[in-house]
């Protein structure tokens, strides 16, 4: 599931649980609507993510493309999820620790 924490300067989408294809299909529209409407920086918080499907990776790429890399980052990844981003060659989307 995804919850949102929004301020004037930022939007944090907090994802939790199994981010599989079904979840992504159901959430994609809503997530991207919030992303496009955000005024400041956008972060996807994956601290509580158990599993990341290809669709979630695509969603991250979509968000980064929509906002530009300066306004988007994936944050608080656990080592297993970090490994996924690393293998996928998408570690540039991860915020620096």
């Amino acid at each position: 599931m995804v919850q949102y924490e929004e301020t004037e300067e930022s939007l944090v989408a907090v994802f939790s649980g199994r981010l599989d294809t079904v979840f992504c299909q159901e959430s994609e529209l809503q997530v991207m609507e919030r992303v496009r409407a955000a005024r400041g920086r956008v972060e996807f918080d994956l601290a509580k993510a158990d599993y990341v499907a290809s669709a979630l990776l695509r969603l991250c790429l979509q968000a980064a493309k929509s906002l530009g890399k300066d306004r988007f980052a994936v944050v608080r990844v656990n080592p297993f999820v970090k490994k996924v981003f690393k293998i996928a060659g998408m570690d540039s989307l991860l915020a620096e620790d």
């Binding site: 297993f80 490994k83 996924v84 981003f85």
Partner: peptide
């Protein structure tokens, strides 16, 4: 190759 790499990333979790 990019598609394959993404698949590899997801696969690594199974």
């Amino acid at each position: 190759m990019q598609r394959a790499i993404q698949a590899a990333a997801v696969f690594s979790q199974l």
